[in-house]
Design a protein around this nucleic acid. Structure first.
Lengths: 208, 208
DNA sequence: AAAAAATTTAACCTGATGGTTAAATATTAT
DNA sequence: ATAATATTTAACCATCAGGTTAAATTTTTT
């Protein structure tokens, strides 16, 4: 059940999200979350019982936000290249709006993978149907033959990784020029789609 | 200066690496590092002064190990596609031998980017010459025209990201089948090279 | 052999931190 | 109006954790 805007619970969730995203589960301090929510620290425990549970509430909310938008495009009846393009567009749309997600999720993935495992199981996320769909397209000669898992991880890697390494990317490549970095991110969807299509579609002279 | 094998300092560094990699800078406990090194906790401070400095010693050693192997292949006189292939081979070689590196480095990148910034500056890592080299190859028509930065980040993303998400990749795609995962990683170099060459080399019918 | 330096140790310190509690206050139900 | 429930608060607790210290021991230097 969703907390009403302006309620104490809502304020806690917003503050907790800000602090957990910035500092991580271990680095975040309950007093800092309370300060940012403008409440007494004891209330954090009154509403959420423990730091761990508060964190889980935030983490699952983030995962719950992103996953459906991605799996939805994969269950359409489009041909494989359209699906890939829609998937890339959907993914970049989410990442541009919420660029903190990859760094945050991957930090917590490596700290304690079981949390994400539970959510994956809970949401019934299963890539096998997607791999099967890709395999069928390969067998029909629509795209080149390769292990569908490699194709999937190639696409996801190009989508997510640049956001996950945002700090070092900004520093090394963009010299902390925020606008240039935003422009780079804005171009990613088109670049990835073209790159992938070029890599996998057979005899693709028309689009050269 | 390198610590002699079997010396206390060497034991500390090995133990610290194990614990920092597993738990991260914040999650690691000095007592646990001492226990694993088989020494009194005070010795950690005697040799390294603070937890932060001990961590920095480990972190820079890891970065120092990996970077030269990668930049070396980029400074050869080969044509661009050979360079890309050598780079991918070198990168995957390192990652397969030390699969913990991406998860660890990215976790610390997001916790405190300045540490990595300092190392990048210290080692004089500058991608501009590589971008220039790529651009020249594009202008000559050897590979398709695109922003060199996108090409570079595409390649690095496909190399690194699958290792960075190893826990969830193993869980979701490989059902914790370690051998299957290792096989997948072992195939990555060839898959990435072929994928990239297909994506960027013009009229590449011979290799189909 | 003796002195100096390096290394090691057990015990301790201080601040930080997640969590708890009893009481007060506010809100809701009767 | 009163009772019950929910919310809030200041103060506190107990443990944890990085770091320190004086003294003992070992090793190295003279």
């Amino acid at each position: 059940m969703v907390a009403k805007k302006d309620s104490t619970e809502y304020k806690i969730l917003e503050a907790a999200k800000n602090v957990f995203v910035a500092k991580g589960m271990e680095g975040a301090r309950m007093q800092e979350i309370a300060d940012e929510a403008g409440i007494n620290k004891a209330l954090l425990h009154y509403y959420f019982r423990s730091k761990e549970r508060l964190f889980e509430a935030i983490f699952s909310e983030i995962i719950k936000y992103a996953f459906p938008k991605l799996t939805k495009v994969l269950h359409s009846d489009s041909d494989i290249t359209s699906k890939i393009e829609q998937f890339v567009d959907a993914y970049l749309n989410i990442l541009i709006k919420h660029p903190f997600i990859p760094g945050f999720v991957m930090k917590e993935l490596n700290r304690d993978p079981s949390g994400l495992f539970k959510l994956v199981t809970k949401f019934g996320i299963d890539p096998q149907p997607v791999f099967k769909n890709i395999k069928e397209a390969m067998d029909k000669g629509e795209i080149v033959q390769m292990d569908p898992r490699h194709l999937a991880i190639n696409i996801i890697s190009m989508c997510v990784f640049p956001f996950a390494v945002r700090p070092i990317l900004s520093f090394v490549v963009f010299k902390d020029d925020k606008q240039a970095l935003e422009n780079f991110y804005a171009e990613r969807a088109e670049v990835i789609k073209k790159f992938v299509i070029n890599a996998i579609v057979v005899n693709n002279e028309e689009n050269e």
